[in-house]
Amino acid sequence: MATASTHGPVKEHPLAATAVLSVVGYVLVLGTFAGIVDVFPPIGNDTVILFSDAIAVVNSFALTALLVGFFFIRRGDVRRHRAAMLSAFSLILLFLVLYLWKVGGGFEKEIVIEQGQFLAAYAGLIRPLYLAMLAIHILLSAVAVPVVIYPVVLGLTHTPAELKETAHARIGRIAVASWSLSLFLGVVTYFLLNHLYGWVPR
């Protein structure tokens, strides 16, 4: 992803840089959920709903950029691959800010399936399916953090020729697969929670 050779501690120690950035991300997320990191201004119900919609849009664009970037590298177009992947990564950072603000300043939502809604008679199956998709989405989001950061660190500090001597392509393929599935499930669960069924604050 880099267009010129760079030197420095990050290039020399990409695993260490990935570990540090991953830990910072985990601390920020877990601290926000635990109420320890209290840096987000309170927001009302309408803003929580707005953030939920914005997050779904951001994730949809991030998924698109990710798949487009994978398509470009398969064609050998490094420049467009780099632009698409950095766009996807930037969108995920935007998602993180919106999501943590929604959680830290607002609240989480719990799905409610009411009589008369789509396939409400099968709520006993739909709710566990929704929770399973949500769990996979969350798990992949957590596990994918270092897997996503590592190829980004490599790409920003190495030239295309240098990247051939690293694990950038191999780890990148794993990142694309896990990240894409996580984003897709995130959008699906958003649709189920906010448009097909209902919710209550949790």
Rank of each mutant, 00 (worst) to 15 (best):
T6A: 10
H7P: 00
H13E: 00
P14K: 02
A17C: 06
L21F: 05
S22P: 01
S22K: 07
S22F: 11
G25I: 06
L28I: 01
L30N: 03
G31K: 10
F33R: 07
F33V: 00
I36Y: 12
I36E: 06
D38H: 03
V39A: 09
I43F: 07
N45T: 09
T47A: 08
V48Q: 13
A54I: 08
I55Y: 04
V57S: 07
F61V: 11
F61L: 15
F61E: 03
L63K: 02
L63S: 03
A65W: 02
L67W: 05
V68H: 08
V68R: 12
V68P: 08
G69W: 06
R74K: 10
R75C: 05
A84L: 07
A88T: 01
S90F: 11
L91E: 09
Y99C: 10
W101A: 13
G104R: 07
G106N: 13
G106S: 13
G106A: 07
F107S: 14
F107A: 06
V112Y: 08
I113A: 12
I113L: 13
E114H: 14
Q115K: 15
Q115G: 14
A120E: 14
A121Y: 11
A123K: 12
G124A: 06
G124N: 05
I126A: 14
I126H: 10
L129E: 09
Y130N: 07
M133W: 09
M133E: 10
L134A: 11
L134V: 04
L140Q: 08
L140C: 10
S141N: 12
S141K: 02
P146F: 04
P146Q: 08
V147R: 08
V148M: 14
V148R: 06
V152D: 05
V153L: 13
V153E: 07
G155D: 12
L156H: 07
T157N: 12
T157E: 09
L163R: 10
K164F: 05
A167N: 06
R170S: 07
R173E: 13
I174R: 13
S178T: 09
S180Q: 03
S182T: 05
S182A: 14
S182L: 01
L183F: 03
L185N: 01
G186H: 01
Y190T: 02
L192W: 10
H195S: 01
Y197G: 00
W199C: 00
V200K: 14
P201Y: 04
P201Q: 05
